[in-house]
Design a protein around this nucleic acid. Structure first.
Lengths: 131, 131
DNA sequence: CGTCATTCAATGACAAGGAATATGATGCGT
DNA sequence: ACGCATCATATTCCTTGTCATTGAATGACG
């Protein structure tokens, strides 16, 4: 039977596990964010969106799809795309068959920046996630 | 020798691993945050501080120590404590031997709320982290 | 002591994210 | 064709976080 002491021990381990996840998440995200900011003048969230757009270089009306592949809110995605657009890295193209939806496309500058930033991103992931 | 294809595969796995960490972090943090907000009217960060204060129910000039045990910035901690104090859950006590530092102490209300919230917190950790 | 560098914490200006809501487009039921 | 629910996105408002700076206290050292 589970004693009170067992329960406390288990709770303590859970909390330790959680703190360790938090730390490694923040350490990694922070390192990547600072590096991208410094070298390419974009934040982590902006890169993540760029990365998703680059990844699905095919059909479909993006915005919606993006929302499903990131933990960001719909409004956060909308604002990140605003910034990317202002920075000249992506364009919003209206979608012929459903004018509510939007296509996102990388500009040449966007493609170039993504290529370089991705190298940095992967390197920092490797460094921080081990393996 | 490592081919270009090997490198691409490895990168893809790294990115997958990272997205999985992100998702589980946000899922867990989000669930806890919403639950605490709904039932106890405090956010996750506020609870984490409360938890740390409750945990080190002993000596030492807190604020500083807190900064070392959480990924939050010093100024974030300061503001979280502001809110906790306004909510009547902790008090800032000046520290006799170093008047730059501060003690934090739980009020009775703080202790009570922490006790209840901790149950919820642990339960959600267990649910989300598995085990 | 008097200075100077350092430390702890608070603050103000600003950026970013979330919730709720607005806007406009679609599509269904009648 | 009209009204209505629903969908994709944008926008507004508010909260929270960060950065840089400030203020006060301390400590080291000549």
């Amino acid at each position: 039977m589970a004693t009170t002491r067992d329960r406390q021990l288990h709770d303590r381990q859970l909390v330790e596990q959680w703190r360790s996840i938090q730390n490694s998440y923040f350490r990694t995200a922070g390192a990547i964010d600072r590096a991208l900011e410094a070298k390419f003048d974009i934040g982590l969230n902006e890169f993540e969106i760029l990365d998703l757009v680059a990844d699905s270089e095919e059909s479909a009306c993006r915005m919606k799809a993006l929302g499903e592949r990131t933990p960001m809110t719909q409004s956060a995605v909308s604002k990140v795309v605003d910034r990317l657009e202002k920075a000249g890295l992506v364009t919003r193209e209206t979608c012929a068959d459903d004018r509510r939806s939007l296509f996102l496309e990388l500009t040449e500058a966007g493609r170039a920046l993504h290529a370089n930033a991705a190298v940095e991103h992967r390197a920092l992931l490797k460094e921080n996630l081990g393996s």
